[in-house]
Design a binder for these strands. Structure first.
Lengths: 334, 334
DNA sequence: ATGAAAGCGCTAACAG
DNA sequence: CTGTTAGCGCTTTCAT
């Protein structure tokens, strides 16, 4: 049987209040007794029961993290950031992978509610009214990471997707490319889809390259879809010499497609990615890409929930972090 | 204020026991009252307090999962497996990423102990006596996944590493290669290192190719190390025409190195990987590799803890799942 | 400085 | 079938 505070008290020959005190306010207990209590705790490998504690404090010292797809390494970085912040701030972390399934997500929110996590980090997905209602109903503070909401006043941290996309496309244009395609996220079920398209559009417009606007195909988060999308893109627009991919995974899918068609990257076609995942530097060719401060995004998000949990309010509601271009080997001058 | 069972009782005009009953034994409550209670629960968005429940049941309905490196996508699959099993079995899951840090691991075990998780899945690392002591001291049942212990009687699920390595090397030999190198895991800090080397050895020995035994370099889990190790391997043994890599990540590091040296894979050198990560099919060339049933490994591990938690004992202590060779494009006949 | 006792929200006898 | 009540393990007044 797991030892309780009573066992410790008995072994140390003191009352349970004294044991409680050595744990929470050590200096209010006389040295000699404190020693005995500490020894007893050690001896019994006593761990205070967090249920009993939670019942009193009404806090679980746990945060919840909702991830859409754990097999997407983008989220590994987010997770590490959140987790490190949690360690520093004294929280445990409950990570839940929704596999982009609505019901699953909803039921995880219930679980968080029931487990009474102190706050929630909601990663990178559209926050549908249904989710919002449930979250708000649970009265648990939450923040969005790699996402945002203009409809509701929800704290969020992300990069400036439009500006980042703009930078990527400008880079391609600067290399001399005039026939530029894009593999984007579907606008309906992604949060970054529209702004990244706008960045693409703006760069084109600025440079008088609007004729490329129709050279866009959409894919659904995964490599395989991007592979297919690339197929369609090149079938319809064989003259393309550069492709802006809104995710490194899409860049890999595109390059893989081109490679299977014996079109070499970057010699014949330049491909730029987005995210700067760890694989980006391992791929062949090594991907030129837009780096997101993924780890920092996660870290910051956790800090923000903490702020919300402790102070009840938040300093900066919608926060942007900065991206940067990483030049490697997948793009070349036209 | 979060509503309690009392608020529900009051609103429904019944006692708290009745409310408790509709939640735990609905048919012992008369239809009319049950309805009222259910309505009140709905209305108040009531969620029973899991602290109070935990105090009574002495169960948290939560499992803990210890992962050495969440940025290694091998573990994404494990996590998904464990998580799906948890959903089916009614557990929440607490995932902790140790970053292969001893202190971090130890402190997570403390956290699990304090949070009173019902069981722990310990993934893919050597279980040092220090870990074992702590885990055993917490009296929380645990099982190893992609790992094992012969020293202690700890339940485990993994593949047969030696046989899998043997199959990989035999495949290379069958392709006509006689100059074969290997990039392995360090034997001191990995669980799969020694058996995979033995598999390599056995295949060589059986075919009279023992002269390759010295063509082995070790790397430390990550791509970059494998890249370096490949450099050393080829510097010392330029005649190598095939490399057995004990991880897909190593295979990518090796191929990346070769590519940077303008040595093409598989035309000049064949490279076989291990794990069959999701990237394996996205890489260039697509990796020929040994597939591990990663998801299933995680799933099974969770089932085993559950078995341990509920029955107190385990049917099969050390379990092996089967691997298989996936032929893609990174190997070719000599 | 320390012990006794109330109470956090819930479940499970025990009465009725 | 339903209400009353005693804890679960801990913290926190309140006395002493």
């Amino acid at each position: 049987m797991k030892p309780t505070i009573r066992d410790v008290a008995k072994m140390a020959g003191v009352s349970i209040s004294t044991v409680s005190r050595v744990m929470n306010a050590p200096d209010t207990v006389i040295e000699s007794k404190r020693r005995r209590v500490l020894d007893a705790i050690e001896e019994l490998q006593y761990q205070p029961n967090s249920f009993a504690r939670g019942l009193i404090y009404k806090k679980s010292f746990t945060l919840g993290l909702l991830i859409p797809d754990i097999e997407n390494i983008y989220y590994s970085g987010i997770i590490r950031g959140v987790q490190d912040a949690c360690i520093r701030l004294g929280y445990s972390l409950m990570i839940c992978n929704t596999d982009r399934d609505k019901d699953r997500l909803l039921s995880y929110i219930d679980a968080f509610h029931e487990k009474q996590v102190d706050g929630i980090v909601f990663a990178s997905d559209i926050i549908f009214p249904e989710y919002y209602e449930k979250l708000a109903g649970s009265r648990i503070p939450f923040v969005l990471v790699s996402s945002h909401s203009y409809e509701y006043d929800i704290p969020s941290v992300e990069i400036d997707d439009k500006a980042a996309a703009y930078d990527a496309v400008k880079y391609l244009i600067g290399l001399g490319h005039t026939e530029i395609g894009m593999i984007g996220f579907n606008h309906e079920n992604s949060i970054a889809g529209p702004p990244r398209f706008e960045g693409f559009l703006q760069a084109l417009t600025e440079c008088g390259l609007e004729h490329n606007v129709e050279k866009v195909k959409y894919a659904n988060h995964r490599f395989e879809h991007a592979y297919e999308a690339a197929g369609e893109l090149f079938a319809e627009h064989p003259g393309i010499t550069a492709v802006f991919c809104v995710a490194d995974e899409f860049a890999m899918g595109t390059i893989s497609y081109l490679n299977d068609r014996n079109i070499s990257v970057p010699e014949q076609v330049s491909v730029i990615g987005f995210d700067n995942l760890r694989v980006a530097g391992m791929y062949i060719p090594k991907l030129t890409t837009i780096a997101q401060p993924i780890y920092e995004l996660g870290y910051r998000a956790a800090e923000k929930v903490h702020e919300l949990v402790t102070t009840g309010s938040i300093d900066i509601l919608r926060e942007k972090m900065s991206h940067r271009l990483i030049v490697r080997d997948s793009c070349r001058e036209k």
